[in-house]
Computed example of a mutant assay.
Amino acid sequence: MMDVLNKIVEAKKIRVSELKKIKPIEEIKKQAQTIKTVSKFYKAIKKLPHEPIKLIAEIKKASPVKGLLKEYDVLKMADLYISSGADAISVITEEDFFLGSPEFLTKIKEKYPHVQVLRKDFIFDEYQIYESKMLKADAILLIACILSKQQCKTLYEVAKSLQMDVLFEIHNEEDLEKAFFAGVDIIGINNRNLKTFQVELNTTFRLKKLIPEDKVVVSESGISEKVHVQELVKNGVDAILVGTSIILSSNPADKIKELKNAK
């Protein structure tokens, strides 16, 4: 998987360098700073006592593991997510391996400006954060394992300066150290081992114990059954990020309700 991860990042670097030729960083930075929207993503996914778990439903066309999942209309799927009770939407915008598009995110925000939308991509350059603001994202994903400690802190601060939230994704204790160093307030625990592709919900249970109570914790990957959510709720998780099991379900609306109502 690390080879695949490196390939994804390399492909993204090429795309970012092309974008910089079209619109230099000084220009996009200036434009992004004129957009005065303030993210409500943190509030949307913070679970209050006695509330059901918060659900971030993902727009995902494909993955390096499973290939193409399903062809579907992005706006219709977003509509289904919202009407079924999703608390926020994650949109994968990575083009080469996940068949995503930045356009998906912008279209959803234009149709549903009140809905909180996360841009899920492989972000390593502040240019991509200014781009995310221009795309109307409320929050961005930062993946600890592809960034140095200092990059984590710098990119986090750039996003916050633009009034955007950050879902900071970790996989192990080393990544968690980066989260503490950067001072993040939302920590996503990815249950997928990036070296073996194995998914272990125990990753969330193990790392959650090491995270201070004042952080919002999101569990990601491998969540497909009511029993998974019940265990996560017991362990104090605020939110779940679910894509594949909803998209591949014969009834995505029912799947969302099943996961949301697990107590």
Rank of each mutant, 00 (worst) to 15 (best):
M1Y: 14
L5R: 06
N6I: 14
N6P: 05
K7E: 13
E10Q: 14
E10G: 05
K12R: 15
K13F: 06
S17I: 07
K20E: 09
P24H: 12
P24S: 13
I25F: 04
K30Y: 13
Q31W: 07
A32E: 03
T34E: 14
I35P: 06
I35D: 08
V38S: 09
K40S: 01
K43C: 00
A44I: 04
K46F: 00
K47R: 15
K47F: 02
E51T: 10
E51P: 04
I53C: 05
K54I: 05
K54Y: 02
K54V: 02
L55E: 03
L55W: 04
E58P: 05
S63P: 01
V65D: 08
K66M: 08
K66P: 02
V74H: 08
V74E: 13
M77K: 12
M77I: 14
Y81H: 09
Y81I: 11
S83I: 14
G85M: 09
D87Y: 00
A88S: 10
A88R: 00
T93P: 01
T93D: 01
E94Y: 02
F97P: 01
F97E: 08
F98E: 08
S101V: 10
P102F: 12
E103A: 14
L105S: 07
I108F: 08
P113Y: 14
H114G: 02
K120L: 10
I123K: 04
Y127D: 07
E131S: 12
M134P: 00
L135T: 08
K136D: 09
I140Q: 00
I140L: 05
C145Q: 13
S148I: 12
Q150F: 10
Q151I: 08
L155C: 09
K160N: 12
M164Q: 07
M164E: 03
E169D: 12
H171E: 04
E173W: 09
L176K: 09
E177I: 13
E177M: 11
K178N: 10
K178G: 06
K178L: 08
F180C: 11
F181K: 04
A182H: 05
G183M: 07
I189P: 00
N191P: 01
V199G: 03
E200Q: 14
T204R: 03
R206D: 12
R206L: 13
R206T: 15
E213H: 14
V216G: 03
V217R: 01
S221R: 03
S224D: 12
E225I: 03
K226Q: 14
Q230K: 15
E231W: 08
V233S: 08
D238H: 06
I240N: 01
S245E: 09
S249G: 06
S250W: 04
N251H: 13
P252H: 10
I256P: 02
K257L: 12
L259Y: 07
K260E: 06
